[in-house]
Nucleic acid binder design. Structure first.
Length: 565
RNA sequence: GUCUUGGUAGCUCAGUUGGAUAGAGCGUUAGCCUCCGAAGCUAAAGGGCAUGAGUUCAAGUCUCAUUCAAGACACCA
């Protein structure tokens, strides 16, 4: 990484001066008009050494001149008040970076130490249709999964269905009440039964109790209820699978709460051995408060008064199952930020059982709100189903240009995906955001189609022209060219940051910036009419590489490329 | 009530862990197709980052208070 290399040179200079900094950091310049990379450490040194930052800066610049790599790396090193050291790179070093990137399938990015990671996202409940609230977990999770895989980790994705909780008891009750047989039941039945019974349960304690008993008996493997359960699960998961396929979201495991049940006895035994289970109001709980706590954290509810288990229990038991089957170093959960307290409690409960392994990580995402700032709802009061979202986006895209009607169905679906995903992924994962269908249907500006369009128009140049260059020469030909090349060498740092922070938005925004640079270059320079063969070949080399980058990074954002648009 | 987030241009959002002149898109205004794909490009107007205090050489970024908004707070997930 270029930053690390500059830091190494700087370190040598500082060592000679006997200057020491705990955090020696060179970063991309925020004043591109002044330099390419900057070093702000003079201020920190000034404090330690009780000298002025400018004096220190001058010393550093003098010392840098004596480092022989300086000539290779820096076209200019400048000290600017009040104490910034500004580096402008030589064309040679920029091009060397790009040559190295071009030679490697993964752009010469340094890979971290490999871990085995289980990533748990999606998390739909069976018997409820997928609505817009399920979009983020799927899209964000898939992207994080792909980034981790790209960085060489062994990643196992689990959809982790909510398939053994109270909602199943409610649906079974509803089916029986309405005399809907197992042979005849349809997906539509499930989708109407659940909301009805669920809302009736909120009013009617007795009914709720009945459903809770069914749930408990199901968990105890009541034969009849098991049959219902199997049927509900089959119908529902097929539909969930269909939608995830449309989104190009894929899981290695289709497990759920139900898979954790065989591990509950073992879990109970472990908890009992450590004396972590406590009786409280007829239920069994695990207290998770710690000494240094300033706030009260409710205990993890392990087993209800009626004997049924809850999601805290299955979440713990699932860890046992995963440890046994996959030996993960780390488990990553991706869920709505409203569940953060649940995760805190159950992480603590796990810590009390086994303080070290695997590492548990909760990644929250914000709620999807409507234009009124409240959770997204249709007029009927429900969250809109994902199917209707896809349809709406597709219609909007078709209406945006009459030529679009001639597009292949497959390309249309790719574009619908690009629109939705890029609109979602460019937002910071942790914040709530406003879902505006107008924005999600837009095809101009900072959108998925912009990225696809950039790729395709460059690709159409590359199709017409050939080049035989193995390496870029030492030239950079103009401003748009230089800015593009500098943006390209930022890839490694950006991707690393995106992965470390688990923020696909970092990557999405970088990709957009890269495309802006490519478009500026494209408008200014007309490659096909170029007489200068050397220049032409260098530029074709450059564009081939940048298009490869777009393609790879789009894959990490789970966006595919259409043949044409 | 306690706790957790968040408040950045008219709207929707970035802002790499404290640095030099706060960035985009949409919308508005003015330009650019006899030239590789105008779903594009160029330029202009438009915030001083909810408010107030503090820490620091340096604060949108850290601390505290106030305010507004959303959310969570044991037998749903």
């Amino acid at each position: 990484m270029i930053e690390k290399e500059i830091e190494a040179i700087l370190k040598k200079a500082l060592d000679k001066l006997k200057y020491h900094l705990d955090k020696l950091e060179v970063v991309v310049s925020n004043r591109k008009d002044l330099c390419d990379y900057q070093f702000d450490g003079c201020f920190a040194l000034a404090k330690i050494l009780h000298k002025s930052p400018l004096e220190i800066g001058e010393n550093i610049i003098e010392a840098l001149k004596e480092e022989k790599e300086s000539l290779d790396y820096f076209q200019e090193v400048q000290l600017l008040a009040p104490g910034f050291i500004n580096f402008t790179l030589t064309n040679a070093i920029i091009n060397e970076k790009l040559n190295n990137m071009a030679k490697d399938e993964k752009f010469n990015i340094e890979m971290p130490e490999q871990e085995t990671i289980v990533i748990d996202y999606g998390g739909p409940n069976i018997a409820k249709p997928l609505h817009v609230g399920h979009l983020r977990s799927a899209i964000v999770g898939e992207s994080i999964k792909r980034m981790l895989k790209y960085m060489g980790h062994h990643v196992i994705a689990d959809v982790h269905l909510g398939d053994y909780g109270l909602q199943i008891g409610e649906v079974i009750f509803g089916m029986k009440e309405k005399n809907i047989s197992l042979e005849e039941v349809t997906l539509e039945d499930l989708e109407t039964i659940y909301p009805e019974i669920s809302s009736r349960c909120k009013e009617d304690e007795e009914l709720k109790e009945k459903c809770a008993t069914i749930t408990k008996e199901l968990q105890e493997e009541n034969k009849e209820y098991q049959k219902y359960y199997q049927k509900i699960k089959e119908l529902s998961s097929n539909d969930i699978l269909r939608i995830y396929n449309y989104l190009d979201v894929h899981f290695d495991l289709w497990e759920g709460e139900s898979n954790a049940y065989p591990y509950i006895p073992k879990l109970t035994k472990k908890l009992e051995e450590k004396q972590l289970l406590t009786e409280s109001n007829g239920a069994r709980v695990v207290y998770v408060n710690e000494e240094q706590d300033t706030k009260e954290l409710p205990p993890l509810l392990y087993q209800k008064q009626n004997g049924a288990y809850l999601y805290g229990t299955t979440d713990l038991a699932t860890i046992l199952e995963r440890v046994e089957n996959y030996h993960p170093d780390r488990i990553i959960y991706i869920a709505d930020s409203r569940q953060s307290m649940h995760f805190e409690t159950f992480f603590r409960a796990w810590k009390k059982l086994d303080s070290q392994n695997p590492k548990l990580e909760f990644l929250s995402f914000g709620t999807v709100n409507g234009t009124d700032g409240k959770p997204f709802k249709t007029r009927a009061g429900n969250s809109p189903k994902l199917d209707s979202l896809f349809k709406e986006v597709k219609t909007a895209f078709l209406n945006s240009n009459t030529k679009n009607e001639e597009m292949k169905e497959n390309d249309l679906d790719i574009i619908v995906n690009a629109i939705i995903k890029f609109a979602d992924l460019q937002n910071n994962r942790e914040k709530d955001y406003i879902f505006d269908i107008a924005k999600f249907s837009s095809v101009v500006g900072k959108t998925g189609p912009y990225i696809l369009y950039t790729y395709l128009r460059i690709a159409s140049i590359l199709k017409k022209e050939k080049f035989y260059l193995e390496n870029l020469n030492k030239e950079i030909y103009d401003n748009t060219d230089r800015e593009l090349r500098l943006k390209m060498i930022e890839l490694e740092n950006t991707l690393k940051y995106a992965v470390d922070t688990r923020l696909p938005s970092v990557l999405a925004n970088y990709l957009y910036d890269l495309c802006v640079n490519m478009n500026a270059f494209y408008e200014k320079n007309h490659i096909n009419t170029l007489e200068n063969k050397e220049k032409k070949e260098n530029w074709l080399f450059l564009l081939t590489l940048s298009n490869r980058m777009i393609k790879s990074m789009l894959e990490l954002l789970e966006i595919n490329l259409p043949e044409r648009m």
